[in-house]
Design a binder for these strands. Sequence first.
DNA 1: CTCAAAATATGAGATATCTCATATTATTTG
DNA 2: CAAATAATATGAGATATCTCATATTTTGAG
Lengths: 222, 222
Amino acid sequence: MEIYKGEKKWLYLQKNSIADLFSFPVEEFIEVHEYQRNDWIIQEGMRPDFLFYVLEGKAKIYITHQNGKVSLINFINANEYIGEMELLHDVYYTKGIQASTKTICFALPIHYYRKQLLEDAKFLRELTKFLSVKASVMAAKYTQSLAFPLENRLAYFILQTADEGIYKEGHVTVCDYLGVSYRHLLHVLAQFCDKGYLQKQGRNYQIKQYHSLHELAEVFKN
Amino acid sequence: MEIYKGEKKWLYLQKNSIADLFSFPVEEFIEVHEYQRNDWIIQEGMRPDFLFYVLEGKAKIYITHQNGKVSLINFINANEYIGEMELLHDVYYTKGIQASTKTICFALPIHYYRKQLLEDAKFLRELTKFLSVKASVMAAKYTQSLAFPLENRLAYFILQTADEGIYKEGHVTVCDYLGVSYRHLLHVLAQFCDKGYLQKQGRNYQIKQYHSLHELAEVFKN
DNA sequence: CTCAAAATATGAGATATCTCATATTATTTG
DNA sequence: CAAATAATATGAGATATCTCATATTTTGAG
């Protein structure tokens, strides 16, 4: 992890107008952090000292269950918050956050700014919108995971993440994300190939029948 | 649905200090609504005109999927908001909300108060806390539903809802809530009886071995 | 009070998903 | 660069869960 200083820091403070996020000055103690792929931004179970706001990059929220299973709860992208739960609640089980690409974020020391943040309507309004989307997305994922088999959820995921017709996500991550075993994921991928929806290319898969995948994914329309 | 007027309305406005919820006067247009068990407070797909704040009672959030399956997303209890998604977002697929006991709530016409609400730090702070808990609960339910079989989730649910050692929830509601088929729910309940954890009493079940249920539910500790 | 609708109940067979075992191939790190 | 670690891959058998069929009982509306 690198903390930007001087020139480099001011560059980010200017480029991303913090005036849209907070209505009080935060320049004094705000930091700009850079994390590399696979760095842990927050370790599971360890309360963070900062409220983060992601400027660039992509990260993953993980939780480990008592049976050892690991769930990838969701991805975090630019313009999203990290550590807001700890800002709002004194008692909270902290999830692990891992950068999945190089990730740059604002880091506000909670210690200094907590009180002001909780009285700032501009900040609260943004956070409220962020949280409402988060709650709504989680609710959708929850009910969909119970209502539809992997076939449908995987088709949707493939369409979402494929790049120029090529699906190339790592299986392990996808298992954690879709909440199924490695074995089963490979099984359904193999079915998709058998049916001609996909064609394997090394360790990637090329989409051959968009319409079939769309048909499977369609059940999530809302 | 009944809208309280005069005396009855003022009673509720006094008893539940709205001054804790909003920092501007809402007396003029706020209403107090009473819904009976099974009344729909909001119909699925129909944008509501009000932001609700539940004072008494209990309600259920439902969504219907394209395959006809119905999910009971969660319960709503006193001191929670309903319709906040529609307040925050112009475009949103509205879930159905059904009272499961007599339910009394404040109803603020969004049309009149939207702008003020979104600038009121007190209101936003409360809503933020509510939404953060909601997001967090949904995330937990999501990952738990994928990581553990019904056995564990049902044990937890029974312990949560049993009243003086007697579990008496309707099966249909529980299926929608836990996201399993009616058949499977009955199957696992029968297993619990076979193992001596529960004993059937008419259509209720008496808890016979708390420790066994606790053991199953323990995996959700956090 | 009556009838229709909803909820409860149970069986049998199908399918989705998991566990475990084992090999091979990448990737990371000292 | 080598060894350790993580990711990919596949088979076989177990289990969790679903679908459908059907019967009985309870509940709600008129």
